[in-house]
Amino acid sequence: MTTSVQAGPAVDLTGRNRRANLIAFAAMVALIAIAPFAAYPFFVMQALCFALFACAFNLLIGYVNLLSLGHAMFLGLASYVCAHAAKVWGLEPVSAIVLGTLASAVLGLVTGALAIRSSGIYFAMITVAFSQMIFFVCVEAPFTHGEDGIQAVPQGRALGLFDLSNPWILYVFVAVVFLFGFLAIQRIVNSPFGEILKAIRENEPRVISLGYRATLYKLAAFTLSAAFAGLAGATKAIVAQNASLTDVAFAMSGEVVLMTLLGGMGTFYGPVVGAVIVVAMQNYLAQFGEWVTVIQGVVFVVCVLAFRRGIVGELAARARVSL
């Protein structure tokens, strides 16, 4: 057998690890609290959405060793559904986001049921193909408005109470959604269900021989990952007030891999760190045009060749904890 993608030990939250994770979580919350004063709030909210997207992707690659190269379809579809529900049906934002998330979960269930029969690179290629199919559907379908996308999505009042057109309320709302998603994924990974996922990652035949239906567990993980990616996409539609083909395009599927790889696959905080770096890179290097693509490619190559643990994975390994 070849070595699995995530090299670190299985996560257990005892003693040292529990302390390290508490410190990391406190640091993250503190950073989220001061970030809008230090950086452009819209940029931070966007970064939080992508961070949640990367965490959702990491649930698959980091804990089940399934590489999806089509995760943009979940981000994009939820974004379109949420934007459509908020704008055309006039739904309040929370319902619109839930609807978008559900749409991606269903898409995850259907594509997952087909893709999960294979693993490894075969699985990756199937996800590429499905995501391309969804991309073309979004190009053709009338409700997505093709190249124009859905513009001027109303932010509305969350649950009829919180006016999201107020930038501060919107910021708190996005931070809450992100922390909810982040903690939910952490909870899933550390649950008995998550233990079985990790067991499948390490040795699938053995898990099957113990009587577990590994396929169903993988499908559940895929669907959950799709749902959280959808939550990120739907929230992003409310933040940016639009849904466009960018979110469903193939390049987006590549970017989320880059975020997770750079930050550290199979770590809780890696995808968040990676997402912030990649989004920052795009914002601050935007003037260099296509060089951003080249730089992203180089980062990919360097990470794969020499830095497979990623930033957080490397730090955690140095400090002998798992984050």
Partner: peptide, 20 residues
């Protein structure tokens, strides 16, 4: 000797570099 997914990611990165 590593997971073949790494080779896939490597060629993915190279594709970005070339196209960019």
């Amino acid at each position: 000797g590593f997971d073949p997914l790494y080779s896939l990611l490597l060629t993915f990165g190279l594709a970005l570099v070339f196209r960019g």
